[in-house]
Simulated assay, not measured.
Amino acid sequence: MSGFLLAGCSVVGKRSADEPSFTLQKKDGVFEVRHYGRTVYAETVVDGAYAKTSGVAFSRLAGYIFGKNRAKQKIPMTAPVLQEPVSLKIPMTAPVLQEKKGDGWLMSFVMPDGSRLETLPEPLDPAVKLREAEGRSVAVIGYAGLHSEKNIRKYAGLLKEWIGKKGYRAISEPRAASYDPPWTIPFLRRNEVQIDVE
Rank of each mutant, 00 (worst) to 15 (best):
K26Y: 14
I65D: 01
A156N: 01
E99D: 09
K160V: 14
E161L: 12
G13Y: 03
A49R: 09
E149W: 06
F31I: 11
G63V: 07
Y179L: 03
K100Q: 12
I141R: 02
A42L: 02
T39C: 06
V110S: 04
E122T: 13
Y36D: 07
L120R: 01
I163N: 09
V11S: 13
D113N: 06
V46N: 01
R116P: 00
Q73L: 10
A176P: 00
M92D: 13
I141E: 00
V96F: 09
E122M: 11
T93Q: 03
K26V: 15
R175N: 02
E198D: 13
A94D: 10
W183A: 08
L97D: 13
Y41P: 00
S115M: 10
R169P: 06
G142W: 01
K27Y: 13
V40C: 04
I90V: 11
L158W: 09
M1D: 07
M111C: 02
A144E: 15
S115N: 06
V56I: 13
I195K: 04
C9I: 03
Y50P: 05
R70N: 11
W105L: 07
S16M: 09
K89W: 06
Y41I: 00
S108R: 02
I171K: 13
A94W: 11
L5E: 12
Y143K: 12
K150A: 13
G29T: 02
K52M: 10
K100R: 15
G67W: 05
F22M: 05
A139T: 04
G104S: 10
A176W: 01
S10E: 08
G48P: 11
T184Y: 04
E134C: 08
A62R: 00
D113I: 05
T53R: 04
S59L: 14
R136A: 10
K14D: 13
V81D: 00
H147R: 10
V138W: 00
L117A: 10
T184L: 03
V40R: 00
G29K: 01
Y179M: 01
E84P: 00
V56F: 05
P85T: 14
P91W: 08
V138I: 14
G157T: 06
R38V: 06
M111G: 02
Y64C: 02
Q25A: 08
S21I: 06
L188I: 04
V56H: 07
T39D: 04
T44E: 05
N191H: 04
A156S: 15
A71K: 15
E43M: 04
S87K: 11
A127E: 10
